[in-house]
Design a protein around this nucleic acid. Structure first.
Lengths: 201, 201
DNA sequence: GTCTATAGGGCGATAGAC
DNA sequence: GTCTATCGCCCTATAGAC
């Protein structure tokens, strides 16, 4: 199935390879959205994408690296939407991200799988992803906390780094609870945390 | 290696089988404490315990059921210690449990692995464990929240169920963060949550 | 009852042909 | 780039020795 190539690029020709990689990634994300992170062997993904498992290894190096790439690509859409709102509270960010994940439960399963792999030894790709992920997210949230404190929306006496870790942890843990029992008070608990952090009425 | 049998019991004779099962479990817990949840195949565990993988299957039915049994057995010691203290706050319970897990990181890895398996389909043992686990823990914590509210130590206007879910989620999430980066403010964030829940000074 | 041995199949990863 | 073939490891399940 020859498709119209997006400008093959005479020089430094990685365009074709990257395009193919992106194609595979797009299809893989669809698969995760539809079927969840279930039975995600290289062979199963390869079959769904329409190549062999060897091809996936060629493009991504290992199953784990492919999974990381899928998660990061899927996360971008959430990120983009958040850029639009102004000075959101840390908890609002988590609520928005939870909303997105609720629509695509496969992403939460994938996140859990990657985190479980990350805290075991011998999974460098997952460990690197998780370490970098928490570093970035925590940094981001710490900044939001500071902004909200300056705006008088979060109590100024709280340590931004502790607040950030708490908010992230709560969000992660609640998603797990909610996936196992959809009567778990996910939104309520997040809203509760929001209220607790707010400057005293 | 014939060991002194603990009263073979003429009737309803499951004593011997249960004893062997407990032996295996004890040894498996040691292995997890020493080496973490790494490379936990039936064969690897069997080798460490000193039997074959078939023996483990015979006693526990499947790898997943063995892992659940190991986690539950390892958790009992924490539970026992908590019974001693009187009317602990929900967060104090989590801090104590975090302290225990810090000493035996393999248990946190095991917990993560089980939770990741639980939220995927096709892992009934893990799913049953996790569902029941959250049900029990949440029930327990809700009760503690109520007691603390009556004692005037937690704000009476908060929904106990939301508080319980939040505390559990925060604790779980912080342990993951801490395992990946031991400078993550685990204790600080838990203490912060404790302070936020406290009746206004 | 308890355990060993083995069958049958899936996995990730690699090597090399096209 | 993509394929096939293959390696070594893992899993569950079962047959039968002790």
């Amino acid at each position: 199935m020859p498709e119209p190539e997006p400008a093959p690029a005479k020089r430094g020709g990685y365009a074709k390879g990257d395009a193919r990689k992106q194609q595979i990634l797009d299809r893989a994300i669809e698969v995760f959205a539809q079927r969840g992170a279930n039975k995600t062997s290289l062979r199963a993904i390869a079959e769904a994408v329409g190549v062999t498992h060897g091809t996936l290894i060629h493009h991504f190096g290992s199953l784990e690296e492919l999974l990381v790439a899928v998660y990061l690509a899927g996360d971008k859409s959430v990120d983009a939407r958040l850029e639009l709102s102004e000075n959101p509270s840390p908890v609002e960010i988590m609520i928005e991200s939870a909303r997105a994940n609720r629509a695509v439960p496969g992403m939460v399963q994938l996140y859990s799988t990657l985190m479980a792999a990350a805290i075991e030894e011998g999974h460098p790709a997952a460990t690197d992803f998780a370490t970098e992920w928490f570093r970035t997210v925590r940094e981001n949230i710490v900044q939001r906390v500071r902004e909200n404190q300056q705006a008088g929306r979060i109590r100024a006496d709280l340590d931004p780094r502790a607040v950030a870790s708490l908010v992230i942890a709560a969000s992660d843990g609640l998603q797990t609870q909610w996936l196992l029992d959809d009567t778990a008070p996910q939104s309520e608990a997040l809203q509760l945390l929001e209220d607790l952090l707010r400057t005293d009425e």
